[in-house]
Amino acid sequence: MSLAVASRYSRALAEVVFAPQCPTKPEQVIADLDAVVAAMQASPELVRILRSPAVSLNAKRGLLEKLSARLGGSPVTTNLLKVVCDHGRITLLKEIRQSFQSVVDERHGVARAEVTTAQPMATEQKIQLEAALSRLSGKSILATYQQDDALIGGAVAKVGSLIYDGSVRGQLATLRRKLVNG
């Protein structure tokens, strides 16, 4: 439910940001939203004020305007914050940011990949892996890499909702299922 709502706001935001006359870049908006989300996570009092029905909408809008200005937010971001606050959806800001990121990636033809390996990967392997994933997804890959010893060996790549598991742990799990099921 919240994801669907966040998706609506993010798509509307994308329409504004990707308009030819808009001076603000999508990356700028994402950075602004990251800053606001970080500020809200750091200050529960701020969230409480923004959610409180006892505080007037004008006061909330003023507060968000000041916060955005202090964080160096763009006018587009400030407007988004005001609209979201007016509709009582300020707690969905993190989801809106993530959804907006997906929309931006989609418009740029980018797919984000999370690659996990047991050992650090060589640069050459990273290039090969990104090329393979790009061919599979049909988009350019923006990959993030992390390590997990539990994999034992091999790698796991997650692109969107697809998971490609080439780890030893995954193969052992498959073997275990086969053994149990006979």
């Binding site: 390996t117 047991a118 050992q119 990967m121 060589a122 392997q125 090969q128 892996l129 393979a132 994933l133 061919r135 599979l136 060996g153 091999g154 790698a155 790549a157 490609y164 080439g166 780890s167 030893v168």
Partner: peptide
């Protein structure tokens, strides 16, 4: 370990 990752990449290809 690198060989395993390479094998995974080859499988993906």
């Amino acid at each position: 370990s690198r060989g395993l990752v390479s094998a995974f990449i080859q499988d993906l290809e």
